[in-house]
Design a protein around this nucleic acid. Sequence first.
DNA 1: CATCAATTGTTCCTATTTTCACAATCTTTG
DNA 2: CAAAGATTGTGAAAATAGGAACAATTGATG
Lengths: 214, 214
Amino acid sequence: MATQRVPQATAERLPLYYRSLQRLVDNGKTRISSSDFGKIVQIDSTTIRKDFSYFGALGRKGYGYNTQHLLEFLRKTLYQDELSKVILIGVGHLGTALLNHNFERNNNTRIVRAYDINPEKAGKEIGGTKIHLMDELAKTDNSDITAAILTVPAERAQEAAEQAMASGIRGFLNFSPVRLTLPPDVYVRHVDMTVELQALIYFLNHSMEEKQNK
Amino acid sequence: MATQRVPQATAERLPLYYRSLQRLVDNGKTRISSSDFGKIVQIDSTTIRKDFSYFGALGRKGYGYNTQHLLEFLRKTLYQDELSKVILIGVGHLGTALLNHNFERNNNTRIVRAYDINPEKAGKEIGGTKIHLMDELAKTDNSDITAAILTVPAERAQEAAEQAMASGIRGFLNFSPVRLTLPPDVYVRHVDMTVELQALIYFLNHSMEEKQNK
DNA sequence: CATCAATTGTTCCTATTTTCACAATCTTTG
DNA sequence: CAAAGATTGTGAAAATAGGAACAATTGATG
Ligand SMILES: NC(=O)c1ccc[n+]([C@@H]2O[C@H](COP(=O)([O-])OP(=O)(O)OC[C@H]3O[C@@H](n4cnc5c(N)ncnc54)[C@H](O)[C@@H]3O)[C@@H](O)[C@H]2O)c1
Ligand SMILES: NC(=O)c1ccc[n+]([C@@H]2O[C@H](COP(=O)([O-])OP(=O)(O)OC[C@H]3O[C@@H](n4cnc5c(N)ncnc54)[C@H](O)[C@@H]3O)[C@@H](O)[C@H]2O)c1
C-alpha cells in the first residue's frame, strides 16, 4: 500500500512546517513557493519539495503551494485535527512553566492532568490544569492519553516513567537528563537543555578557533 | 594541524557523554567499556568508539576507557574547565524556571544576568540572578558573555536577538518558536518543545499503523 | 491564445552518518 | 609468563540525508 516510507528527518520537520504555515494562513497569505517558504523555515527549498513529495503532489507547478490546503494536509498527517491529550508528571519549576504555557491556542495538544509526589501541590490548579497526587496515576484510566511529559528530577525519572507505563502510556517527552530504559514499543524523545547549551558553546569556541587558523 | 575534522553529529553527542561520564565517576566507577557505556547513553558502541577516535586513542584495548581520564578530556574539549557565562533574556514562565535551575552544580555554565522589558521584574532576583531592564543590555560590557538564552515571546525574539548582538553576543539558545534571521557568524540553536511533542505524537501514531499492517 | 515566467516533482549525484567486521593489542589468570 | 579473553581503533560497506539540475507543467500576460 505504497505511500513510500517517510524518512525520519522529513517527519521531524513536519511540525515546523505546520506551525510556520499556520502563521502564514493567519496573516492571510494564500500561496507560497518552496523557495519563499524555505527562507522562512531556513531549510533548502529542494528539501522542502522533496519532503512534501513523499506524500504525493501537494503543490502546483508554476504556482507553488496553496497554504490553506497544505496546512489542512499537515494537520491531518500530524493528527492535529483531533485533540491529543497528554499528562505532565512533576510540577516543579519547569513543569509549572509548561502548565502555564500549555501549548497555546491553534494547537490541538493539551495537558489534561498533572501529577506530583508532593501532597502540598496536589489538589491545586495551574493554568487550568488540576494537579493530582502521584498515587492516583495508577488508578486513572489513561487509555485516551497519548503521551506523558516528564519533568521530575533525574533520579525519579525512571520510576515515574514506569508508573506511567503501567497505566498504559506509550510515549514520553523526557526533560530530565537521563536516558530511560523502557520496552521497545515505548517511544521516548528527549529535550535536553543542558546538552543543547554545551553543544552551542562547543560550536562557538571551535568556529572561533577555525577563524584564527586562517 | 591534524585532529581530523570532528563530524557535527559527533560533536552533538559529546555533552551527553560528558554528563553520563560525570555520573559514573561520581559513583566511583573507574573504567568502562564502549559497550557498557553504550547501554547507558543508548548509543551503539561502535558509534561511541568512532566518536572518541576523532580525538585520538583515548581508550586501551582489552581494557576500555578510564572514566576519570575520559571525563578530563571531555571537560577540556567542551570548555567546561573554565566558566562559561551566559545571559537570559525574557523572565517569564520559562525564563524563571531556567533561572531557578541555573544548570546545577558540576556544570561550568552559569546564567550571570537576566533581562526583561517589564519594569516590574527589573531589580528583582531569581535563583540568585539579578534581573535588569532590557535597555541596560546595550550599555553593558558583554565581551565576556558566551551566549544568550532567549525566552521571550515569539514576536519579540528577533528584536531581542538583535539587541543582544549589538552588545557583542554571537551565540543564542532560542526557545521561541521562530527562526531568527541573523548574520552567518552568529550561531543559533533551537529548543522547540512544541515541535518535539508533535513529532512524538506523529511517531506514536505511525508506529501503531505499521503494526496494524502486519 | 501564444509566449513567457515561475515553480514543482523528481532523477541523479554528493556528503554525512551509522554499522559491520576484524586485526591489533592490552589485561587477566592460572 | 603463556594462553585465553576482552575490547579498542579503523577501513570498508551500507544507510540516510541533502542538494544541484532540469524536464514538465501550470499560471500570467499582452
Ligand atoms: N528547570 C529547568 O529549567 C530545567 C532545565 C533543564 C533540565 N531540567 C530538568 O527537568 C527536570 C525538572 O526540573 P525542575 O527544575 O522543574 O525540578 P524541580 O525540583 O523544581 O521539580 C521537580 C518536581 O517533581 C516532583 N517529583 C519528585 N519526584 C517525583 C515522583 N517520583 N513522581 C512525581 N513527581 C515527583 C517534585 O515534587 C517537584 O515538584 C529535572 O530533571 C531537571 O534536570 C530542568
Ligand atoms: N513556558 C513554556 O513552557 C514554553 C514552552 C514552549 C515554548 N515556549 C516559548 O518560550 C518563550 C517564552 O515563554 P514563556 O511562557 O516564558 O512566556 P512569558 O510570556 O511567560 O514570558 C515572556 C517574558 O519576556 C518578556 N519580554 C517580552 N518582550 C521582551 C523584550 N522585547 N525584551 C525582553 N523581554 C521581553 C516579558 O516581559 C515576559 O516576562 C515563548 O516564545 C514561548 O513560545 C515556552
